[in-house]
């Protein structure tokens, strides 16, 4: 009951901000349109499928969910600095109420965002199959990584620092190291090795494998992402718990 109440509040708080709506739903569509135009302008003899819709759709589905870190982080940081969280900490709400109350709205938004992005990709030429529905679910799962990052940053930083960390740094790191905007295989070397170690590339590949119906690849890529997600969530829970217990509030 408290979880649902708090989750409803959080989703209202985020969606009533027009900037959030733009970044949450509009921005991936703008990128899709822009990169599709660029793709159309690349001559066929260049043989560069970088921005072909099969490659673009999973990348943008993943990239859109990076903003969940910003939304979650900013919300928690603002709740802390406005003392709204202090009010709630004196209420009967438990740690689980807070954790799920902040996480569920992000998952719902990630689900909606992924559905819009992948369906728009369908209009742009992506083959529409039942795999798109599965890809929406997988995107929601990979978005947990960013939700956890937002929970962690929001628990530790003020809203301006969260804006810098989740809004500027994380979006850039996730964008460049996932292969959405640059061909990782062409670059190769240490750069490619780094992207293989980090979870962003695997998030895109898990979504892509789902769209392709390649279940073996889904699990192997998703396992890497979920490993990082578990670690980040554990750290976020520890950081948030230390705020609830108050000694570092």
């Amino acid at each position: 009951m408290r979880i649902i109440l708090f989750a409803k509040r959080n989703i209202k708080e985020i969606l009533r901000d027009p900037i959030n709506l733009f970044f949450g739903l509009g921005f991936p569509l703008i990128l899709l349109a822009l990169l599709s135009v660029i793709n159309a302008a690349i001559p066929p003899e260049a043989n560069n499928p970088m921005f072909a819709i099969e490659n673009l759709a999973p990348g943008l589905a993943m990239f859109g969910t990076v903003f969940m870190a910003l939304f979650a982080g900013m919300l928690i940081a603002k709740d802390r600095t406005s003392s709204f969280l202090m009010r709630l900490f004196t209420s009967p709400m438990t740690a689980l109420d807070f954790l799920l109350g902040y996480t569920l709205p992000m998952l719902i938004m990630a689900l909606g965002q992924a559905a819009i992005t992948l369906l728009a990709s369908g209009i742009a030429g992506l083959e529409i199959t039942v795999n798109i529905l599965l890809a929406v679910v997988v995107t929601m799962l990979t978005s947990l990584l960013f939700v956890g990052a937002g929970l962690l940053c929001g628990s530790l930083m003020g809203d301006k620092a969260v804006g810098g960390m989740c809004g500027a740094l994380l979006t850039n790191v996730a964008g460049w190291l996932s292969g959405v905007f640059i061909p990782l295989d062409l670059i190769g070397g240490a750069f490619k090795t780094t992207t293989d170690v980090l979870p962003f590339y695997h998030s895109v590949q898990a979504i892509r494998a789902t769209l392709d119906g390649n279940s073996g690849d889904i699990i192997s890529h998703l396992a890497v992402v979920m490993g990082y997600t578990v670690v980040i969530f554990v750290l976020a829970v520890i950081a948030f718990q230390s705020k609830i217990s108050g000694d570092k509030a």
Binding site: E13, S82, F84, R87
Partner: peptide, 9 residues
């Protein structure tokens, strides 16, 4: 609390 501590939106 000292701050108004309301949900702004």
């Amino acid at each position: 609390p000292q701050e108004t501590a309301v949900a702004a939106n």
